[in-house]
Simulated assay, not measured.
Amino acid sequence: MMASGNNKPGVLGKKAIGPGEIKKMDPIQRARHMAYEQPSKSIAASLAVTQTRLKEHALKSISASKQRVLDPQQEMQNKVVGQLKAAEAHNRIRLMRIRFQHMRAQELNNLISCQPTARDAIRLEVFLPPRPHTDKSCDPLRWQQRERVESLLEDDRGLMTNRIP
């Protein structure tokens, strides 16, 4: 049974569109139409060749993976190499962390030294220590240094801490 107006036998409700009409279509409509068309003989042949190459490659990779069974000595060596690489990565991270802490300490020391008064510098150093606090229970200052720091902090008018510009 053929539908009336069809140029292709066995296709119901679809009429053939000539190359001139395809060229007149906008690109989206042309792409939709061409998506359902049968490819030309040269394109179909190249698709068949590509499919056979892909199947051959898949078969080769499967057979190669079966042949690649490692002996225990090789597996042990691979494990040791993996552990060495992990240790190197851990060491790089540790060095990067140390380098960052050192640069941060330098920046904070610079910021502290650029304060206009010694009192501001001491306050900033108390609130932003250049190095992280270590859990030391002893006081790092001797009693004379402690008295000097406390007298500087008690100086409200800044008579002892004003710097000469």
Rank of each mutant, 00 (worst) to 15 (best):
Q73F: 15
Q74I: 06
Q74T: 12
E75W: 05
M76G: 09
Q77N: 15
Q77A: 13
N78K: 14
N78I: 06
V80G: 06
V80R: 13
V81C: 09
G82Y: 01
G82P: 04
L84H: 09
L84Q: 15
E88K: 11
H90E: 15
N91C: 09
N91I: 03
R92E: 15
R92G: 04
R94H: 11
L95A: 10
L95V: 01
M96V: 02
M96P: 00
R97W: 14
R97T: 05
R97I: 06
R97A: 12
I98L: 08
R99E: 15
R99Y: 01
Q101P: 00
M103Y: 02
R104D: 11
E107N: 03
L108P: 11
L111V: 12
L111H: 10
L111S: 05
L111A: 11
S113F: 03
S113Q: 03
C114K: 07
Q115R: 02
Q115T: 04
Q115D: 09
A118Y: 12
A118P: 06
R119L: 15
D120L: 04
A121R: 00
A121S: 06
I122E: 01
I122N: 03
L124Q: 06
E125Q: 14
E125V: 08
E125I: 12
V126G: 09
V126D: 07
V126N: 10
V126S: 11
F127P: 06
L128I: 09
L128Q: 08
P129K: 04
P129Q: 12
P129T: 07
R131G: 00
P132N: 09
P132W: 11
P132T: 03
H133Q: 07
T134L: 13
D135I: 04
D135L: 05
D135S: 14
K136G: 09
K136M: 06
S137R: 06
S137F: 01
C138L: 13
C138W: 14
D139C: 13
D139A: 04
P140Q: 00
R142I: 13
W143T: 03
Q145Y: 02
R146C: 04
E147A: 15
E147D: 14
